[in-house]
């Protein structure tokens, strides 16, 4: 029926492709959260050079197109490392994709963390200081619990954005779902049903996730 049965015929490789997307998503999200948190800490630090370096890193990484970073890490970084190491290195495409998307998202995550921490009213911190609490305790007990709740919806939607971005990784030969779809299109010569079906499937997946996050966001604001 309109060629949509092809999705069933190729279900196994499509499923494997989707798993690769999820793998890249999970790995790069973790990397992005860790690097983003480090960058945020640097950005808020009292040490001036550290603060400047973190600000510069965030600014640059947020200005780099995803695709440029993907190609740069996949093709340039191994060459540079080979020169340092003195022997020829290559990067696995999945590793490159994880690094690139992890760095891209670290820039966004860092800004979200910072905004969340800034959104905690200064008066709450002053009140804790007035009670004699130490700065780490204030951070752990007063600032972070509030900040995390404030930034959770934004983090969720950024993660959904990251999941959308994982569809780019086929350009550096990661065998993800788009890679498989493109192969099937070449084999079957039927772009209309294949691309339309893929667009519809992703639309429903992302829309579902977005509305889930939206509902969770409303609930956390009401709480």
């Amino acid at each position: 029926m309109y060629g949509l049965t092809m999705f069933w015929d190729y279900r196994v490789i499509l499923w494997h492709g989707l798993l690769i997307n999820l793998l890249v998503f999970v790995l790069s999200s973790c990397l992005g959260l860790v690097v983003g948190m480090l960058a945020c800490i640097g950005r808020l630090s009292h040490v001036r050079p550290l603060r400047a370096a973190a600000a510069f890193y965030i600014e640059v990484i947020r200005s780099a197109p995803e695709l440029v970073l993907l190609f740069w890490i996949y093709s340039v970084v191994p060459v540079l490392l080979s020169e340092i190491a003195g022997s020829r290195l290559t990067f696995n495409p999945i590793l490159s994709a994880t690094l690139a998307l992890g760095l891209v998202s670290s820039g966004y995550f860092a800004e979200t963390f910072r905004a969340g921490i800034h959104a905690v009213p200064a008066g709450h911190v002053e009140a804790a200081h007035a009670l004699g609490m130490s700065t780490p305790t204030i951070l752990r007990r007063i600032v972070l619990p509030q900040a995390i709740r404030l930034m959770l919806p934004e983090l969720m939607s950024q993660n959904i954005g990251l999941l959308k971005t994982t569809t780019l990784v086929s350009v550096i030969t990661v065998p993800d779902i788009m890679y498989q779809i493109n192969l099937i299109v070449q084999q079957e010569m039927r772009p209309l049903p294949l691309y339309t079906g893929t667009a519809a499937a992703f639309f429903l997946l992302i829309l579902g996730l977005t509305s889930l996050v939206g509902r969770a966001g409303t609930r956390s604001r009401e709480a």
Partner: peptide
């Protein structure tokens, strides 16, 4: 809610 890469291929090949 649709990834841009899919939209691009969709317009370039499916629309065509």
């Amino acid at each position: 809610n649709t990834p841009i890469f899919i939209q691009l291929l969709w317009v370039a090949y499916a629309w065509y």
